[in-house]
């Protein structure tokens, strides 16, 4: 049984400071185990989020030594020797201690135009594995919001939040854009409303994804290509002018009720 020191940021929107807790730890423990021990003994009011403790719900994201991690999946013995510093995710406003106000993400989720499928045949839709796989990758997302936290477009620029959906919702748009059943054309929406152009593909989001979703390569870049094809390729542009609305505009669809 050895000891571990956690430097935990404690405070609220009015400010705060680091508090150090030194506690015993045993082999194989993750950060969340130590936090639970601190709560059960020294600091029962230490605020943190967690649910499944198995890397499946994405609740317990904080910054460990400055980098976003899931507390339930970060083993102490994988970290450098010495005190471990825990801070709340920087991109979101503080509620208390390690808990942030992530409502930005729920606001973005509401803006996403819903899936617009064709009517379902009596025996159900037919879709093939190779056609569903691209979107299935994006549906692995556990909404830990670490990609949002690490994205410098909003991490360092509060003013961009108004017009920028962030990597989590770029993969959501990509999922729907590539969904075999979706009849929406989402390209205008992604360019004009979701701020895809502001992403300059530094891949920070991909690096932190605990589900190893290739956010940049498989979602953002293909989305950017689709937008470019639609808006800057003169042949495609002309085609669109003539054959307008082969797919429904996602901005129109946003106000239609989902089936």
């Amino acid at each position: 049984m050895s000891e571990i020191t956690m430097r935990v940021w404690r405070g609220d929107a009015n400010g705060g400071d680091f508090e150090s807790y030194t506690t015993e730890r045993s082999d194989g423990e993750v950060i969340l185990d130590v936090i639970h021990r601190i709560q059960a003994t020294e600091a029962p009011d230490l605020a943190c989020r967690w649910n499944c403790k198995a890397g499946k719900c994405g609740s317990c994201a904080v910054e460990v030594n400055g980098k976003p991690r899931l507390m339930c999946m970060t083993r102490i013995d994988t970290l450098p020797e010495g005190p471990v510093t825990l801070t709340p995710m920087k991109t979101f406003p503080i509620i208390r201690d390690l808990v942030t106000d992530v409502s930005f993400n729920y606001v973005q989720a509401k803006k996403v135009p819903a899936l617009l499928p064709p009517p379902m045949p009596a025996e159900g839709y037919r879709m093939f594995q190779e056609d569903v796989e691209r979107s299935q990758e994006f549906r692995k997302c556990i909404e830990c919001f670490m990609c949002q936290d690490v994205c410098h477009v909003i991490r360092d620029h509060e003013e961009n939040k108004e017009n920028y959906a962030g990597p989590r919702f770029f993969i959501r748009h990509a999922e729907l854009e590539m969904h075999p059943l979706d009849t929406n054309d989402r390209r205008d929406f992604v360019r004009e409303e979701a701020g895809l152009g502001m992403c300059n593909i530094t891949k920070c989001c991909t690096e932190v994804c605990p589900e190893h979703i290739k956010i940049t390569d498989n979602a953002i870049i293909p989305l950017k290509e689709r937008v470019v094809d639609a808006h800057y390729d003169p042949v495609a542009w002309l085609g669109r002018k003539i054959l307008r609305k082969t797919k429904t505009s996602a901005t129109d669809a946003a106000v239609q009720p989902a089936p």
């Binding site: 379902m120 037919r126 879709m127 093939f128 549906r139 969904h179 059943l181």
Partner: peptide, 19 residues
């Protein structure tokens, strides 16, 4: 279960495209 597909669920498929 079929209804969930109308709302976006993507289950693994059989060779002939069913769930």
């Amino acid at each position: 279960v079929l209804e969930l597909e109308q709302w976006g669920a993507l289950f693994d498929r059989t060779k002939d495209g069913k769930i």
